[in-house]
Nucleic acid binder design. Structure first.
Ligand code: FES
Ligand code: FES
Lengths: 144, 144
DNA sequence: GAATATTCGGATATTTTAGTCTTAATATAA
DNA sequence: TTATATTAAGACTAAAATATCCGAATATTC
């Protein structure tokens, strides 16, 4: 089970952060991304196409083609990516699965969860993806 | 998309908390639970059987049969339920989907996430289900 | 003992998510 | 202009999660 974010969304986060380490306007192919990040080729292709349609990435066909960020890295946060792929329902959903999540009729853990959820939001928006990418200590991202 | 916990697990949490409000050794039928909590009958039946096999609930067949807690409410936490249904992988998984989640090769949000994850754990273990159930302000649980 | 109300167990069905394949479009370079 | 390397798009398949169905077992009540 993936937690909070769908598999698609996890892959999107990984891929966009990888692109954020690349020099501006350098195109990166799906092939390179899947090789480095170990993501199924065609699945990632779909995800990148999706992100491109939504403006987060730009793409170019042909040799020397590939994908790059669709806007300056400093204007993109992880939240934008999550928003594009999974949507933001998690920001106002009950962690116990009840249909409503409000302070009006809170479930047993609503107060705690509301705080944690804010923490998750902060985690996703506090830094842009350029800063985020620099903080990756994963071997997949070394000398990208 | 359900968040963190599977749908099954959400239903389990809701149902066990409902049982925690009942007098000791009073049996509650699936029928009552599904009516009050709006959970698909046969699906809930499966989940309760599962929890019974794992000792969290006890069951009795026949008229006046049903389900009840398998041990004192004060000895059960939400974490026990999550553990029984979804398992505890979420406690040591990377929120960005990387294969490893350690301080050794942290992803960009590892520190933040590790803290939030502890918060989730605390949320699940800080009170037993008797106290939890009393804090439910959902109409489904009134005069249970 | 018969009728009834429940859980039990396993098979099946449906829906969603994940992943694959194939063909077309396009850009580059020889 | 031709060969090639890429993305684009959509159909397809596979797997997992969710949900349903049915017959058997069992306990209660009459
Ligand atoms: S009502 Fe459950 S988390 Fe808000
Ligand atoms: S490595 Fe990503 S959350 Fe721990």
């Amino acid at each position: 089970m993936s937690l909070i974010f769908s598999r698609q969304c996890e892959y999107a986060l990984q891929a966009v952060l990888y692109l954020a380490l690349k020099p501006h306007n350098e195109m990166t192919s799906i092939k390179e991304l899947t090789r480095r990040l170990d993501i199924p080729y065609h699945f990632l292709a779909k995800i990148l196409q999706d992100l491109t349609r939504k403006g987060l990435l730009s793409s170019l066909k042909g040799p020397t083609g590939g994908f790059a960020l669709g806007m300056p890295a400093k204007d993109i946060t992880l939240f934008h990516i999550v928003e594009a792929i999974d949507g933001v329902d998690f920001m106002h959903s009950c962690v116990m699965g009840f249909p409503e999540c409000t302070g009006k009729n809170p479930c047993a853990v609503h107060e705690k969860w509301a705080g944690l959820r804010d923490g998750i939001y902060t985690m996703l928006v506090s830094k842009n993806i350029a800063e985020m990418a620099k903080n990756m200590r994963k071997p997949e991202y070394q000398s990208a």
